[in-house]
């Protein structure tokens, strides 16, 4: 198990960046629909595309974190309790 690739402090920062980029991508996609100005719309769409790429990249990295290998049965249990 290669769980020492991404350390704890890196994981936290990656997590922060992922949440931030998620909000950015969501907002860009919504705002692009509301904007009338073509140049601004193009810029928002460009940001949306690069954001998606970055999110995927960061997600792949955070999978290498020590925390990503923790017991996932707990979350499955929690989900089962909800239903």
């Amino acid at each position: 198990m290669n769980n020492n690739r991404i350390a704890a402090h890196e994981s936290f920062e990656l997590h922060e960046l992922i949440t931030f980029k998620n909000v950015c991508a969501t907002k860009s996609s919504v705002m692009a629909g509301l904007v009338k100005d073509e140049e601004l719309k193009a810029l928002l769409n460009q940001e949306l595309n690069t954001s998606q790429e970055h999110i995927r990249e960061l997600q792949d990295l955070i999978q290498l974190s020590a925390f990503a290998f923790e017991d996932t049965t707990r979350t499955e249990d929690a989900l089962r309790h909800q239903n």
């Binding site: 690739r5 350390a7 950015c24 601004l40 990295l61």
Partner: peptide, 27 residues
């Protein structure tokens, strides 16, 4: 919307610069 976008981009620069100072892994 442009102003809101500008604020987001500014925050992205700050956040990623701060995150970069914590990175040890090359990738």
């Amino acid at each position: 919307i442009a102003l809101d976008f500008l604020l987001s981009v500014k925050s992205a620069i700050r956040n990623s610069a701060m995150a970069l100072t914590e990175m040890a892994d090359q990738e």
